[in-house]
Simulated assay, not measured.
Amino acid sequence: MTDSPQDDLIAIGALTDTVPQSPPTSRARDIWDQFRKHKGAMLGLGFLVFITLAVVIGPWLWTVDPQKLDIRNKDMRPIYTAIWDSSAKTSWAKPLGSDQLGRDNLAQMIAGGRVSLAVGWAAMLLSLFIGTSIGVLAGYFKRVDGLLMRTTDLFLALPILPLLLLAVTLFRQPLREFAGSPEGGMFILIVTIIAITSWMPTARIVRGDILAIKEREFVLAARSIGTTNGKIIRRHLLPNVLSPIMVSAALGLATAIITESALSFLGVGFPSDYPTWGKMLADAVVRMERFPERVMLPGIAISLTVLSVNYLGDGLRDALDPRTRGR
């Protein structure tokens, strides 16, 4: 030690300066570091990026019209079927084959994926907005909690598929006239119906978290200094329910894709000449014995997309919720 207390403090400070200090990390970097440890989530993210780029950029790379009829080249097999069946009718001009009307399967897969992802994202965002808004209002304002939760219970008790079929039957024509095209009207109708019938789990989860968070010290302190309810909700409550909201978003996207595919499979979705994965699956089932690959192509696309979204939701949950880290 040195001769004076002041010299001791200087010496201690010098030693402290020599210790390497880890740079501070942002919350976004911390979330990303946790997210990339989840291998399934990373694989899911990679596949979603791939399928999104494929359906967005695909029409510029593969310029074949998905609705073009080519009867001369109908019922062509994918080129890989030639590996085990040398007599298969294949062509590099239609690498995934063609359907019973000669329409190119690759072009239909690209167009169908664009429809499924567009419907999924739009329905998920609308459902998330409705569910989060109702959950926050019910959890924060006690006077409307009972009414909103009983409304949520009512929607949960409704049979979803019959309701979807009834709504499509009743509102298909009015929305077609409103949008100016059958595809536009059906898009608005399907997105709205899926959102209206899928917001309830998000509302219940968000309400439960809001009920717990609104009694925390930082919320009570903000309320005591006169902070308005709107600012409390925006600055203190919503950031702290981000984890369940993101998980609900991932699950909602998967549910919306499956629901749209199911409606198209049942023949009550988009027009019959408009390609979607569900419509391709419905057409392929009829001739599954002769052309099994036609069922596999849209089926695998739907399954992998939904599986990737579910893994992505698991990764977001682990990254956003500190309680799940280190498991």
Rank of each mutant, 00 (worst) to 15 (best):
R235P: 10
P95A: 12
K231R: 15
I233G: 12
K74E: 02
A118R: 12
S26R: 06
P20A: 15
R287T: 15
R287W: 09
M1F: 07
L69H: 05
T132S: 14
V285T: 12
P23Q: 15
N240P: 13
R234D: 07
N73L: 04
F47H: 06
N105D: 08
T18G: 01
R27C: 09
L251W: 07
R77N: 10
S181H: 00
V191G: 03
T202V: 14
I232K: 12
I160A: 14
I71L: 15
A88I: 06
F178E: 11
M200N: 06
L106A: 10
I194C: 06
A221I: 12
I190N: 02
T18C: 02
S272K: 08
G208A: 09
Q173Y: 14
N240E: 14
I71V: 14
L307C: 12
S181E: 00
A284S: 02
A54P: 09
L320T: 09
G139I: 08
M109E: 07
I258G: 08
N240R: 15
L156H: 03
V241D: 02
R77C: 07
L126H: 08
F291R: 00
V191M: 00
A118S: 13
L53N: 09
L281D: 02
W84V: 06
L312G: 00
V49P: 08
T152W: 05
A14M: 04
G326A: 15
P174G: 03
S198I: 00
P298L: 01
A107W: 02
S243I: 09
L69Q: 08
L96P: 02
P239M: 06
L43C: 13
P78Q: 13
V115L: 02
E289Y: 09
T255C: 05
S22L: 11
A256S: 03
W62C: 06
E289V: 11
F178M: 13
L156K: 01
A82D: 08
V241G: 03
T81Q: 10
G180L: 13
V206K: 13
R150V: 14
I193K: 00
I10S: 09
G139Y: 03
G180H: 05
G120F: 00
S248K: 09
G315L: 14
K279Q: 14
A122T: 15
